[in-house]
Amino acid sequence: MDELERLQDVTAWRPEPGRRFFSASHEEIAAGLTTDVYFIKTRETLRAEGVAEAHVVAEIFPREDGVFAGLPEVEALLRGRGVKLWALPEGSNFAAREVVARIEGPYDRFGLYETPILGFLASSSGWATAARRARLAAGGKPVFCFGARHVHPAVAPVMERAALVGGAQGAACILAAKLAGQEPVGTVPHALFLILGDTVQGARAYHRVMPPEEPRTILVDTYKDEAEESLRVAEALGDALAGVRLDTPGERGGVTPDLVRELRARLDQAGHRNVTVFVSGGLTPERLSALAEAGADAFGVGSYISSAAPIDMTMDLKEVAGKPRTKRGRIPGRTPNPRLVEVL
């Protein structure tokens, strides 16, 4: 697919008939179809004036503190375009208004892509920041990202990858985990037990079918009291049981610290001290902290990460043709930041 050159190219472009999904393909992003149209108008005007290849320095900064993520996609978009790129290492904490990336080169080589560059960084940094906050609230106990169901499937792998950058231990989305060099994590939904009709029957079936290396963590809130079901499952699977998962719905009060304490105590008293307690369902940093203190061992966090707002990123030109130049309200010239490392 050819890169957009003029406003006429935009007018002439038509989506392929019968297109199934609204998400952009890799080729459409590279062609400039996800940029704001005013960058096409800028390109055409600067080319007409003979200054499109002006050598510039652009800097990107955030409006609030956060965790830096999304850099590999920016690098992939700019690679081979004859520009230089410096940035914070992915996963770094950043402060509001700190320069997180700097691009240097002919403006026409990258100006078209300001919109997707900022989008890559804004969304991924927002998700990574939420994941980091969740992990810290959990007191360092493992947090797994279960947020794919809350976002458009085209960006679910991006979101869960960003969560891994932010500190999540693993991801449930298959593609997200694979792209990060991991295997996806997760147990089974309530549907398994509802169809089979009993938690213990479902646990035994799961144990019989799953490969030996797959941990036996069983959902225990479908039918009966969670503590009662946990003991039934522990007795049925014995030493094969790795953990129990609590996902009690809000209609029944959700998973509370008192429930976790009681469940932990009953498991311990019955000799099942090695059985871990995994909690999921509407978890926020406040709930994570309380549940971790009560004895929960690991967490599945979904909507708190997936619904995180993007961190607003801004790109400014700071030099033009070797001279400090920028818009009012900004300081002309490069902003020193020794934490930036050369990427391209």
Rank of each mutant, 00 (worst) to 15 (best):
R135V: 05
R135F: 13
L136W: 15
A137D: 04
G139P: 02
G140S: 09
K141A: 06
K141I: 05
G147T: 01
A148C: 10
A148D: 00
P153G: 10
P153Y: 04
A154M: 11
A154V: 12
V158L: 12
V158A: 11
M159L: 13
A162K: 00
L164N: 07
G167M: 02
A168V: 08
A171N: 02
A172F: 02
C173M: 13
I174M: 14
I174F: 15
L175Q: 14
A177Q: 05
K178C: 15
Q182Y: 12
E183C: 14
P184D: 06
P184V: 01
G186K: 01
G186Y: 08
V188Y: 15
H190Y: 10
H190G: 09
L192S: 04
L196S: 10
G197K: 06
D198M: 13
V200E: 15
G202C: 10
A203C: 14
Y206G: 01
V209G: 15
V209R: 10
E213R: 07
E213V: 09
R216V: 05
V220P: 00
D221Q: 06
T222R: 13
T222G: 05
Y223Q: 04
Y223I: 09
D225W: 13
D225I: 11
E226V: 04
A227L: 15
A227N: 06
E228D: 13
R232Y: 05
R232M: 09
A234V: 02
A234Y: 00
G238A: 06
